[in-house]
Design a protein around this nucleic acid. Structure first.
Lengths: 122, 122
DNA sequence: CGGTATCCGGCAGGATACTG
DNA sequence: CAGTATCCTGCCGGATACCG
């Protein structure tokens, strides 16, 4: 069953359903797009590796966001070794489908806030 | 000067600058992508018109989000008539540049949560 | 290494009532 | 119509310390 995650509000489940609202509900957190961005660029990572790739994210935030992304089937977590204990976070198919969205974010951010192009004006 | 809005964290202003992080900082709120979506689809709107197009957004949330979008030069507000009092919200160039991003959101949401395609799995 | 537990502050957002 | 004022809630995320 394609039940939408809890993050998607009730009123967006029926007739008034809206793709942008759903996507925003799943992805509009401070860190989630950045996590997906790094997984797209660097492929599967361990927890600390991902934390370093992002920088400035607290362990708690990373942990929580990964759990939600996992629940929403955007990210997959697998234990790849017990001794030493190693884990790997990777994008699912659904997660990889976010690539155009993340690319669009990269491009918009670069175009409008690139340090070299201050003349774009704020 | 192309100073980044306050919403963009300090640590993202210098060397560690990241386009996705900046874009997420400006746009990753529950309602912002939806507001831009509606303005793209319907063109310039008044306040209540916009509120109706979105549905389920409180006046306060709409007001606050519009103010931030204005401060970030994504949306432009103009008074188009005094008596009766009428206002118009429209996308700026920078806001219109968000179209590919919003389109990507629409497509991802439709693909993965369309009621008709429950078999896509949750 | 890969997290969890706890405490904590802030702010986003809902509801409602009110204003010019 | 186009908001503002106020109150209130919950969650989000930072910091720190600790665990297997």
């Amino acid at each position: 069953m394609n039940e939408r995650p809890n993050r998607v509000p009730e009123w967006c489940q029926g007739e008034e359903w809206c793709p942008v609202t759903v996507t925003a509900a799943l992805l509009s957190r401070k860190w989630k797009p950045v996590i997906v961005d790094r997984l797209l660029k660097s492929g599967p990572c361990g927890f600390s590796e991902l934390q370093n790739l992002i920088g400035n994210i607290s362990g708690k935030a990373l942990s929580n966001n990964l759990k939600e992304l996992e629940a929403d089937r955007i990210v997959n977590r697998s234990v790849i070794s017990e001794r030493p204990y190693r884990v790997e976070y990777a994008l699912t198919d659904r997660g990889r489908d976010l690539e155009p969205l993340i690319v669009a974010m990269r491009e918009w951010g670069s175009k409008h806030f690139e340090p070299d192009s201050k003349e774009n004006g704020q």
